[in-house]
């Protein structure tokens, strides 16, 4: 099956600054693909290249089987796009603005606009300039989803939306996937990617630093551990913990009881065996969220770079 999006060694340079370094991405049709990374990582630049708003310096991208520049308007009708920095102004009313976008995108089914506006709680009779940031963002979502495009390219789509609307948005994404539409979603809100995406690529400084199924990134081998002990001296516990491999960020606090927080990287079994020898009042073992995993990846990346320099 032709990938919905494929980039090969895709590169974008602005003068001496390289925004995207040789990006290789493959997005399967009917999947939700998350692009995450901090601001300035190259997410927006990459998405704009897929829409032919900007052109790559080198490398290729194919979108729905076509090169964006050659596919032209006909290709873009098959795509729904929410720009990263959505700015809408003017006296035009929401409904009239959407009617304009409906003319220049794929065919919109009757009632589709009202259905989407109802779902998101958007008043279409108001002038665009009077809308709040969140309501403008809703307009952006409606114009991207209304023609049921084969591919949705959404750049930070939930910025400015309140949590209830974010949840509605996530269910719209799931429905799109169920319809066989492909969704490419960029975000720096990692929980959003965690909930919506099948596959993830982590972008940092224009490079993919990690890629794979969202589960593989999230699970990892890292656990946060919190425990409270009774009837044990802090020094004794500290000495025991010293000997455990893969234990980091150990903090012990005295009080009525001894409190431990630590990060386990690797096998959890030795820690469990050690804990079992004491009276444990409370225990929490958590998998870190994507944010922590990503930070860890960036951390190790930076660490390696630092090592190379020294």
């Amino acid at each position: 099956m032709t990938p919905a999006v494929r980039t090969q060694q895709l590169k974008k340079r602005y003068g001496s600054r390289t925004a995207v370094h040789g990006l290789d991405l493959t997005i399967e049709p009917g999947s939700v693909f998350g692009l995450i990374g901090p601001n300035g990582a190259g997410k927006t630049t990459t998405l704009r290249m897929l829409l032919d708003i900007i052109r790559p310096t080198s490398g290729t991208a194919t979108v729905l089987g076509q090169v964006p520049q050659q596919g032209g308007p006909a290709l873009r009708r098959r795509i729904g796009f929410v720009p990263g920095e959505l700015r809408l102004e003017g006296r035009v009313r929401g409904r009239a603005l959407l009617a304009h976008y409906a003319e220049i995108s794929g065919p919109v089914a009757p009632g589709a606009i009202d259905d989407l506006a109802d779902r998101l709680g958007l008043d279409l009779s108001r002038q665009v300039r009077t809308l709040s940031k969140g309501n403008k963002q809703k307009l952006g979502l409606v114009q991207a989803f209304m023609h049921r495009p084969e591919l949705l390219v959404l750049d930070e789509p939930t910025s400015g939306l309140d949590p209830l609307v974010q949840r509605e948005f996530l269910s719209m994404v799931r429905e799109a996937r169920a319809n066989g539409q492909t969704v490419l979603l960029s975000s720096h809100v990692l929980s959003e990617i965690q909930q919506a995406a099948d596959q993830v690529a982590v972008l940092n400084e224009g490079r993919v630093v990690a890629e794979g199924p969202v589960a593989s990134l999230r699970l990892g081998r890292i656990r946060r551990v919190r425990a409270t002990f009774d009837g044990v001296a802090r020094v004794l516990l500290a000495a025991e913990l010293e000997r455990l491999p893969g234990l980091r960020d150990v903090e012990l606090a005295d009080g009525d009881a001894v409190r431990l927080t630590a990060t386990v990287d690797g096998d959890i079994d030795p820690l469990v065996k050690l804990l079992a020898r004491f009276r444990v009042l409370d225990l929490a073992v958590e998998e870190p969220d994507l944010e922590e995993s990503v930070l860890q990846m960036y951390g190790s990346e930076r660490g390696e770079e630092a090592n190379r320099v020294h």
């Binding site: 704009r48 708003i53 032209g72 873009r76 796009f81 720009p83 700015r87 976008y101």
Partner: peptide, 17 residues
């Protein structure tokens, strides 16, 4: 400059058009 062009050209409109 107002960001309108990016969204318009992301639809089925050619640059020359």
């Amino acid at each position: 400059e107002s960001g309108k062009l990016e969204l318009t050209l992301a639809h089925g409109v050619g640059r020359a058009q």
